[in-house]
Computed example of a mutant assay.
Amino acid sequence: MDASVLLWKQWHKQVKDLFGPMHGPQKKTLAFFVIGIVLSGTAVLQRMAERLSEHGISTANMPSIERRLARFIANDRIEVHETWKQFVAHILPFWSEKKLRFVLDMTPFNDDATIVYVGLLVHSRLLPVAWSTMPAKTKWQEGQWSIVERLLDVIIPHLGKAECTLIRAI
């Protein structure tokens, strides 16, 4: 059995267990989507579909897989922020007794938006744990530190007695 198929089966089970209230097919497609990103190293739907097909995760043809992924993204019934809160509540307690470094970053996205996010520094990788999307060319309705406070309010309840440092990226 391909290691990717084994990974898929384990990940699918974890997603089913983790996101209880989410509808069953949505959980399966969320797991499918994430494993597609992991296998392809990108969030480009066509490349994800190629890798999912190559590794035998799905027997469907690539255009069908790509359409399935696109429908998932377009699904208004997926509550992104609630789903993310469940995920963070499940993942962050692992670090609750450790010394942590968080990085605050503002990344422009095209000319339309700026993504303000707080990420957990793990070795040399930054794992985003909270974010907010702000307009790029108009004045923000909310001040930067108010946004940061709101983002930290999502994270802090799950950190227990962790010693945390927040670093602002330049």
Rank of each mutant, 00 (worst) to 15 (best):
V129H: 02
V129R: 01
D111M: 10
R101M: 13
I91C: 12
S132K: 08
D105L: 04
I91D: 04
D105E: 15
S124G: 02
V116Q: 02
V116P: 00
G119P: 00
S96A: 15
I91H: 10
P93F: 06
I91M: 15
W95G: 02
L104R: 07
I91Y: 15
G119W: 02
L121E: 08
N110H: 14
T107G: 11
F94Y: 15
A130D: 01
D111E: 15
V118W: 00
H123L: 12
L100Q: 04
F102T: 02
G119C: 04
N110A: 12
P128R: 01
I91Q: 10
M106R: 11
S132R: 06
V118P: 00
D111Q: 14
A130S: 06
D112A: 12
R101Y: 05
T114P: 04
D112T: 12
V129S: 03
L104E: 07
A113D: 05
D105H: 09
L126S: 07
L121R: 10
V103K: 13
T107E: 13
L121N: 05
I115Y: 04
L92T: 00
A113E: 03
S96W: 06
R125Q: 13
A130R: 00
A130K: 00
L126A: 05
F94A: 10
W131S: 06
T114E: 13
H123I: 12
T133E: 09
T107D: 14
S96L: 13
D112S: 13
D111W: 09
D112G: 07
F94V: 09
S132L: 10
T133N: 03
L126D: 03
T133D: 05
N110F: 12
L104C: 03
V122Y: 14
S124Q: 10
F94H: 11
Y117E: 08
F109M: 11
F109E: 08
P93M: 04
I115F: 06
A130C: 01
L127D: 02
L121A: 09
W95C: 07
L100H: 03
V122S: 08
K99E: 11
A130M: 00
Y117W: 07
S96K: 14
V122Q: 12
L120C: 08
S124A: 10
V116Y: 01
